[in-house]
Write a protein that binds this DNA or RNA. Structure first.
Length: 612
DNA sequence: TTAGGGTTAG
């Protein structure tokens, strides 16, 4: 039915002129340059040799034609697609020839007509690997030249985009997506979803939104998964309002949010929701229940982790109980989130209790559990216990990973035992675990902490040699060290270096600089940093306010500090222990009683503000 | 083909 457009059956004249090849292998072929497959016997001989992969017997039969010409003949004589595929692959390997894009496309068309889709995918993979600069327009126009089966053509283009996405060739995938519409190819929801998913993984939100909008405009088929992927991408980028718009879009399209949609949104709020984020996350849980979308283990795990990371263990445990009441069994991830929360809060004993509880319930702690507990010990400066747990799990045969080593190295760094820390770094490779940027960050931070700037610089050079790229944390460590060395102005210059390297300064970066200026007795300069931070789209967090309030207090500017305290509360930011210490030590002990909402500060204000 | 846990910096 659907044949290759330009491939015609050979003319009788052409067939007769090659008739000498009806015989077996000619030892001394005449001057003709091509063998002939017009003889049915010869064709079946070739077919069976290719089918059983008797390449050594086939090779002399191809002479004196070259493999490219032989391939053309296979097309002309309408050999089945799998025979042509086998020949193409073998001949590329055996003769080191690269067949043309046209040949590939002719084969794709044959394979598509035979519905041999996985074969097309693996062949596309090879094509893109060997010649990764296949232009999409060449591909598309060649395809249209050889086939008018728009359905098969669209499937081939669809698979091209999938192959690009699977091989990390995101720009090619995007370009193909854009051009596919111009050429009239209809893309499937599968390839679009795959591409959207890869854009999410790459953190390319602008492209994600572009594809999403184009899909709406071009009326490409949408499904629930499409919406969920887009919502996830927007949530991961902190664009929660935009994610909410997409939820509205899906309702317009008659698609109802499911448990994955809600879990994605809840996770978005937990991780990037700003002030009041946990309230919003909890509201979403209530909303899903009202709309008869049943929360699952992931919903609760996400919320528990969110509360724990928000320093609200009480709420984390409340959700944990609620989960059990709903008849859901907490899993390893549930326990890990809680254990990590307790360890972060310095409550290692409770964390160990939870570990015992999970074992009692038949759950096996994994490397994540152990890393969290090791970190709990390390935070409490319990180096001995950190090391013992490490030795213990190694002995148990648990596969330790780079995070385990980094945690152990960090424990030694915090204890000032830099030689041991370096020795551990050197033994990592014995376990086939290799230092990464975080390993270096721990060590560099350790050397700065121990006043050894030379070694810190040496490690920074070593990173360069090993092509381990500095990340935001590396810069934060350097900036913090400079600020503590009264070199804040010099540290500010590193902001430009960061942007040159495509790194976005974080809250920690700006807060370190503000703290530096405050220590140097220059809160005005700190406020300049705050403006720069806000210009970059980062609103101050609790640490920012703590730094500024403390800096102003130290300069005797208590009224101004009080204004910042109120501003922080108005923004819904919850004061932490350090805020209260500042209020006590820097304000009240100096005879200044801060006023909140116009009322004088007292302890009941604390409990009201303390926790959501 | 979509959603959840562990390290380093304030």
């Amino acid at each position: 039915m659907h044949r290759l457009r330009r491939l015609r059956a050979p003319t009788p004249h052409a067939a007769s002129s090659f008739s000498y090849h009806l015989h077996t292998v000619p030892t001394h072929p005449p001057t003709l340059t091509s063998p002939c497959l017009s003889d049915p016997n010869f064709r079946s001989q070739v077919s069976s040799l290719i089918t059983i992969q008797q390449w050594s017997k086939l090779e002399p039969l191809i002479q004196p034609a070259n493999p490219t010409q032989f391939l053309q003949q296979l097309f002309e004589f309408n050999f089945p697609s799998d025979i042509i595929l086998a020949f193409l692959q073998w001949s590329q390997h055996a003769f080191k020839v690269t067949h043309s894009l046209e040949d590939y496309i002719k084969l794709f068309i044959l394979l598509a007509n035979d519905k041999r889709y996985p074969k097309i995918r693996s062949l596309l993979h090879k094509l893109l690997k060997q010649a990764n600069i296949v232009s999409n327009s060449a591909f598309f126009s060649t395809l249209l030249n050889f086939s008018d089966n728009s359905c098969a053509n669209s499937i081939i283009v669809d698979m091209l985009i999938m192959t690009y996405a699977n091989n990390g060739m995101y720009n090619n995938a995007l370009e193909a997506f854009k051009r596919a519409g111009d050429y009239g190819f209809k893309l499937s929801v599968y390839s679009c979803n795959l591409m959207l998913g890869s854009l999410v993984k790459e953190g390319r939100v602008a492209s994600l939104e572009f594809v999403y909008k184009m899909m709406i405009r071009r009326r490409i088929e949408f499904n629930l998964i499409t919406f969920n992927i887009v919502i996830n991408g927007l949530c991961k980028a902190g664009r929660l309002n935009r994610a909410g718009d997409v939820v509205e879009d899906m309702k317009v399209h008659g698609v109802m949010p499911n448990v994955v949609t809600y879990n994605t949104l809840i996770d978005g709020y937990c991780k990037r929701g700003g002030p009041g984020k946990m309230y919003k996350a909890d509201t979403l849980l209530k909303e899903m229940v009202e709309r008869r979308v049943c929360p699952n283990e992931i919903t609760y795990n996400t919320l528990i982790d969110g509360f724990c990371k928000d320093d609200n263990l009480v709420a984390g445990v409340r959700v944990f109980k609620e989960m059990k009441q709903q008849g859901l069994r907490p899993g390893v991830i549930t326990y890990n989130s809680l254990i990590n929360g307790f360890c972060d809060d310095g409550k290692v004993d409770e964390a160990l209790g939870l570990r015992d509880e999970m074992v009692d319930f038949g759950l096996e702690p994994n490397i994540v559990t152990y890393n969290a507990i090791m970190n709990g010990f390390s935070k409490k400066r319990m180096l001995k216990e950190t090391r013992e747990l490490f030795d213990d799990i190694v002995e148990k045969g648990v596969a330790v990973n780079v995070l385990t080593f980094n945690t152990l190295i960090d424990a030694y760094c915090k204890a000032g035992k830099m030689e041991e820390a370096m020795a551990i770094r050197d033994m990592m490779s014995e376990r086939m675990v290799f230092p990464n940027v975080s390993t270096y960050n721990c060590l560099i931070g350790g050397y700065y902490l121990n006043g050894n700037k030379e070694m810190a610089n040496k490690l920074l050079d070593e990173m360069g040699e090993k092509i381990i790229k500095a990340d935001v944390v590396t810069y934060n460590i350097r900036i913090d060290a400079m600020c503590k060395n009264a070199e804040t102005r010099k540290a500010v210059r590193l902001l430009d270096e960061m942007s040159e390297k495509g790194l976005t300064p974080s809250h920690v970066t700006y807060n370190a600089l503000m703290a530096g200026y405050c220590r140097e007795g220059n809160p005005n300069a700190a406020l300049t940093v705050r403006r720069r931070m806000e210009k970059e789209g980062k609103s101050p967090n609790v640490v920012t306010y703590n730094v500024l309030i403390k800096g102003l207090c130290e300069k005797g500017k208590l009224e101004e500090a009080n204004r910042f305290l109120n501003e922080m509360l108005e923004k819904g930011l919850i004061p932490n222990r350090i805020t209260y210490d500042i209020i006590k030590e820097e304000m009240m002990e100096k005879g200044f009683v801060p006023s909140i909402d116009g009322h004088l500060y007292n302890d009941s204000k604390i409990s009201k503000l303390e926790k959501y």
